[in-house]
């Protein structure tokens, strides 16, 4: 017997299964596992739905009670009735955006604070696919949760308004479009926050910056007694954002921009944060 007993050393990869490899689909699956395996995600999304339902209940009850002594809302035109129910339904989005913003920051800042980012970027060393996958998963999940929140809030409001015979038809575009718009806005806020969180890499800093831009900036600008400050207000992400899903019911929104221009403004903020995030993520040491 003269068989060779030394095993040849294989060059390159030693993997046993040649069908595996890095793909964008794989990175998407990875980010989905990451998002759903953290408690902060479950809490945040639960809170978005709870806030939406609670605010819809409060708002519609107070509107219904306020109308009892006033003009008979039940005899108002259908469009006006629908507007009342929709406004009550999307009221919670204003508060829900804060939770979506916090979650958006945490999705990336949590990786920096724990060191997970080094594992992420070792598995996806080109880096940008990891950020893109995070954005796709976060945006989609937040949109779905946001839609669950606004549509179930609509169900709650409808029941309350039915007490005074005010009704809205869900199949009416003036009803379902604002509900979808609210969900879309929540999704875009989470993406904006993801971008800011990536640039700042810190949970505290990222949350402070995003909440400052969403909440503080409009108040500060409105307090400045100058025309330019007032002119800037409608271009703020939270102002334009809120107008995307409330202006469909009014004849024209307060700024007269219309839904699409307002949506474009919000997308502009998201894009700016996204470009900043992509640039810093690829340039910096992790």
């Amino acid at each position: 017997m003269t068989t060779m007993t030394t095993a040849p050393t294989r060059p390159g990869s030693m993997r046993t299964d040649p069908t595996t490899g890095l793909t964008f689909g794989g990175v998407l699956r990875s980010e989905w596992i990451k998002l759903r395996s953290l408690r902060s995600t479950i809490w945040s999304y639960g809170l978005v739905v709870a806030i939406s339902l609670g605010m819809a209940l409060l708002m519609s009850l107070s509107m219904v009670n306020g109308m009892n002594g006033g003009p008979d809302a039940a005899s108002a035109p259908a469009a006006q009735q629908a507007g009342l129910v929709v406004d009550a339904s999307v009221f919670g989005v204003y508060f829900g955006q804060l939770v979506a913003a916090v979650l958006g920051v945490l999705v990336i800042s949590g990786e920096y604070s724990t060191g997970m980012i080094r594992s992420t970027l070792t598995a996806v060393p080109r880096r940008l696919p990891a950020l893109a996958a995070k954005a796709v998963i976060l945006g989609a999940a937040t949109f779905v949760v946001g839609a669950i929140a606004t549509f179930s809030a609509f169900a709650v409001s409808s029941v309350v308004f039915a007490g005074i015979d005010v009704t809205a038809n869900l199949l009416d575009p003036a009803v379902f479009l604002p509900l979808l718009g609210g969900a879309l806005y929540l999704s875009l806020v989470s993406l904006f926050a993801l971008g800011v969180g990536t640039i700042l890499r810190s949970s505290a800093g990222g949350i402070a910056a995003v909440l400052g831009i969403l909440l503080l900036l409009p108040t500060v600008l409105q307090m400045i007694p100058a025309d330019w400050a007032q002119d800037l207000v409608p271009y703020l992400v939270s102002i334009a954002g809120m107008n995307t899903f409330t202006s469909t019911t009014a004849e024209a929104s307060a700024d007269g921009f219309g839904v699409w221009l307002n949506l474009a403004i919000v997308l502009g903020w998201v894009a700016a944060a996204g470009v900043g995030a992509a640039a810093t993520l690829t340039k910096r040491d992790a």
Binding site: D17, G21, S30, S37, L38, T114, M116, R118, A123
Partner: peptide, 27 residues
């Protein structure tokens, strides 16, 4: 293995490994 603290502390070990594996389609 660059340092032991390259894992999100809020995730289970199994989910961490599943997420890492998913990027490359590892089962």
């Amino acid at each position: 293995l660059l340092d032991a603290k390259a894992v999100h502390t809020g995730r289970t070990a199994e989910n961490h490994l599943l997420a890492m594996a998913a990027t490359h389609g590892i089962g």
